[in-house]
Design a protein around this nucleic acid. Structure first.
Length: 282
DNA sequence: CATCATACCTGTTCGC
DNA sequence: TGCGAACAGGTATGAT
């Protein structure tokens, strides 16, 4: 669920709250989720968090990084003295922190703690040398990203040479990085394109509209701090607001926002819930 | 190589 | 009301 805007929110808040603090200890409760030797992090100073598609890298001053894919239900939650007037923890942090779903705890020298929760345990977190982050299999295979290398021209080429459903292409991380189910659904609605359309049947004009729509929905997502329909919370423990602004995602049987009179339909496409307006999208 | 189905998980929602 | 089935869904993996 966390997609580019959600992971961007995670990255931004990690930078805001952790920068320059030193790791005093790392407690690993789940070895399947956390891979590598956490001991190399003790005494290391947090420098910066980066984002690669839906993956974050937390880089430390000693040449090591912690790379994390939160998948659907992974949550970073920071609690510490530099969190000004901390908002109450969202109930979406199931079991709280620490709780039954807390798998890793970083303790910092300012007394703060960074918890990593994951209810469904699909997430992974690994320690690697910072120089090796971009060689990790997942990151190496990542396609061009919106706001970076995914220009309109590059996007056109990708779309026109693929014959699978356009929604599947948008969500294929090796074709382009960062887009998941929420923003793929909303971008296709905004561009008035049916999710099932074969990518190579899109006209040039539709392709351009879709590109603009992707940028637009991702920008809205970033502005709203991500979407918390499901388990997403930002590291300060609160929720994002995109779910209040989503166009079709999770709005099955609701009236189309274009006021066309039709109701949003839900189908399964590529094994995922897919939402669209049967009237507006062609 | 490309494409598709399935496994991985567990809390929540749905249908009978 | 109760209970089991389906669903939520990103990615690795194996099958075709």
């Amino acid at each position: 669920m966390p997609e580019l805007p959600e992971v961007q929110a995670i990255k931004n808040q990690l930078n805001k709250y952790l920068q320059n603090h030193i790791v005093e200890s790392v407690e690993v409760k789940n070895r399947r989720i956390f891979q590598g030797d956490e001991k190399v992090l003790v005494g290391a100073q947090f420098k910066i968090a980066r984002r690669f598609g839906k993956v974050t890298s937390m880089d430390f001053d000693n040449g090591y990084s912690v790379v994390t894919h939160v998948k659907m239900t992974g949550q970073f939650v920071y609690r510490g003295p530099n969190l000004k007037n901390p908002a109450p923890l969202s109930p979406k942090v199931a079991g709280g922190v620490p709780g039954p779903h807390t798998h890793v705890i970083f303790t910092l020298n300012n007394g703060g703690k960074l918890y990593f929760n994951d209810l469904r345990r699909f997430a992974w977190m690994k320690v690697v040398q910072t120089a090796e982050v971009e060689n990790l299999d997942f990151i190496k295979k990542l396609g061009p990203e919106p706001f970076k290398d995914l220009t309109k021209q590059v996007f056109k080429e990708i779309v026109l040479k693929n014959k699978r459903a356009i929604k599947v292409i948008l969500m294929d991380q090796s074709k382009m990085g960062g887009i998941g189910n929420i923003y793929a659904n909303d971008a296709l609605f905004l561009a008035k394109i049916m999710p099932e359309r074969k990518a190579n049947t899109l006209t040039e004009s539709e392709t351009e509209k879709l590109y603009d729509a992707i940028i637009k929905v991702l920008e809205t997502g970033i502005k709203q701090g991500g979407a918390s329909e499901n388990a997403f919370v930002t590291p300060d423990g609160t929720e994002g607001n995109y779910q209040d602004h989503s166009l079709v995602y999770a709005r099955a049987s609701q009236a189309c926002q274009n006021k066309c009179g039709a109701k949003i339909k839900k189908i399964m496409l590529g094994g995922r819930g897919t939402f669209y307006c049967p009237n507006c999208q062609k």
